[in-house]
């Protein structure tokens, strides 16, 4: 990694939802502020900025990460996925997104992008989760609107639907 100096701005290059992007940032600039500011990817939200609420959860090289606890300069060369990268086309929702809509898995929607990114990563590796397991996974996210029950239903429905898609593929 190149040497960084606090006062200077540095160019960071990485892939955001499959496209090469770059931004000029100070070393202290968080990844969250970089995504939302210069890269205009405002779907990732700031909820607590101390890593507890999970609203800013994204995927960095396939793993869940809190964008508020990462610096932009840490993701040089990485592949980042955010909620903007989930839908297969602008006018279509992914299976997971559709399940959230169907089961009223969101109200204000502010925490939702982070939850979607976690579930997207988790269901890829754990196609047959039970409810207890999903509660554990979701416990890294705070939602103040739904009481979680509809989110769990949406997640279970999405998992089932994704399994069907795989078996029919």
């Amino acid at each position: 990694m190149p040497r960084l100096s606090a006062g200077a701005r540095h160019r960071v290059r990485f892939a955001l939802n499959g496209r090469a992007v770059e931004a000029e940032v100070e070393p202290r600039t968080t990844l969250l502020d970089t995504l939302r500011g210069p890269l205009a990817a405002t779907g990732t939200h700031a909820g607590c900025e101390h890593g507890v609420c999970g609203a800013c959860t994204i995927q960095v090289d396939g793993s869940m990460a809190r964008a508020c606890l990462m610096l932009a300069v840490q993701v040089e060369g990485a592949s980042i996925r955010t909620v903007e990268g989930l839908a297969p086309a602008p006018d279509r929702l992914s299976v997971l997104q559709e399940a959230f809509r169907e089961h009223h898995g969101l109200q204000c929607g502010f925490c939702t992008p982070g939850i979607l990114m976690t579930l997207d990563a988790y269901l890829r590796d754990h196609p047959s989760p039970d409810e207890r397991e999903l509660r554990e996974v979701l416990s890294g996210h705070l939602c103040r609107c739904t009481g979680y029950a509809p989110i769990l239903r949406a997640a279970l429905a999405a998992a089932e639907r994704l399994r069907e898609d795989v078996s029919h593929a």
Binding site: A41, H45, V83, E84, P90, L93, F100, R101, L106, G109
Partner: peptide
């Protein structure tokens, strides 16, 4: 929901 689920919320 479509906007909120795809990162196109306008908060």
């Amino acid at each position: 929901d479509a906007a909120l689920l795809t990162g196109r919320g306008r908060y």
